[in-house]
Design a binder for these strands. Structure first.
Lengths: 203, 203
DNA sequence: GTCTATATCCCGATAGAC
DNA sequence: GTCTATCGGGATATAGAC
């Protein structure tokens, strides 16, 4: 950690990036609600006012972290080279990836679903989420013979299941179950939903 | 609201209950993280120190609210007279009830899954959750020919799906979908999972 | 059981110097 | 772009009177 001595001027190479990194660390330790600008500046050894040269306010910094979270999630869901698999297996693979991402980057996962960020005021987040939804739609449409209503039913079911499994895992209901086991479970449930997708539609 | 005048002594009929009620209201408006003891006392017109005659600290009050939430959820999942339905329908019915509860009592639902309460330090909460898990197990075991592993697979899948659907609904991905529609969706996904439950087991 | 008063701490954000 | 200094606010929790 570069410091130019007590009280001296301090120039970080890239304070903006350092703030995002530190925010992730703090969120990991104390949760989103436990994050504060003050704590971040303390850890970096900069003045409390320094972040405001890079971010308008606390939410603006959290939004930047959220964007990074989306990019990482997308990379985990859609690894290069998987595009050749059949849609059902890609879907199961995405469910696995979702679980793995949440477990490996819990602070980021929590931020996305627990931060209460106003996405209307942070369109960057919506833009970063778009590719994820698109990757999903591609798989699901292929399994529904381009029937959009059926595709939506299946997509919602798979998304909800993966999300729900992760939540239950992270909230401590894991009686010794490992991340890998939960990921496999998500994949199996996804296959089961695909198999009985004809039951998912409205009557 | 009974007040004995500005500055005068104030005796609420049941401050403990009033605090729980007010906490629910505040959580509903500002979320769990937006709740504070100070705000609660302000709304009730009592001194900031008054709650400490009934609760050790902020978490202790939130734990009491969580217990009440569990009782309400249990009542919604297990309405009297439904015990006679076949297990699959009871299960679908519970999924519906879960969605309805979350939508109707969002502050309480959020508290249960977002509060980060240390359940080890609040065994009352675990005790209040027990009946819910038990009601669930009863349905699922009947559908699995008493195969405990299979029962656990199905239970986890159904729980996760209902939970995930609710989360997606509450987090704003409802493009005009109503609570009733999501509840029906949860019921249908549950039936689909029951139908393909043979796919849920580990290989 | 409730009040008044207070101690202690943390936070977000800004102004102005350099 | 970063620092120093500061304002204004809100939080939890305790002590002691009644």
């Amino acid at each position: 950690m570069p410091r130019s001595g007590k009280g001296g001027r301090y120039h970080h190479g890239d304070l903006r990036a350092a703030l995002i990194e530190t925010a992730i660390a703090i969120i990991g330790e104390r949760g989103v609600r436990g994050f504060s600008m003050a704590e971040a500046t303390r850890r970096l050894g900069v003045a409390v006012s320094a972040p405001y040269a890079h971010f308008a306010d606390r939410d603006d910094l959290l939004a930047a972290v959220a964007v990074q979270a989306c990019e990482l999630l997308y990379a985990e869901l859609w690894p290069p080279g998987e595009a050749t698999q059949p849609p059902a297996e890609r879907l199961a693979s995405m469910a696995r990836g979702y679980v793995r991402f949440a477990a490996a980057h819990r602070p980021l996962f929590d931020l996305l679903y627990e931060a209460g960020l106003d996405k209307k005021q942070h369109p960057e987040i919506e833009a970063a989420e778009r590719p994820i939804a698109d990757a999903f739609s591609a798989c699901v449409l292929a399994l529904s013979d381009a029937d959009e209503a059926a595709a939506d039913d299946l997509a919602t079911a798979v998304e909800a299941t993966a999300h729900g499994l992760v939540t239950l895992l992270l909230d401590g209901d894991h009686d010794g179950t490992t991340v890998g086991q939960v990921a496999e479970r998500a994949a199996r449930v996804t296959r089961a939903l695909v198999a009985s997708r004809h039951l998912l539609g409205s009557p």
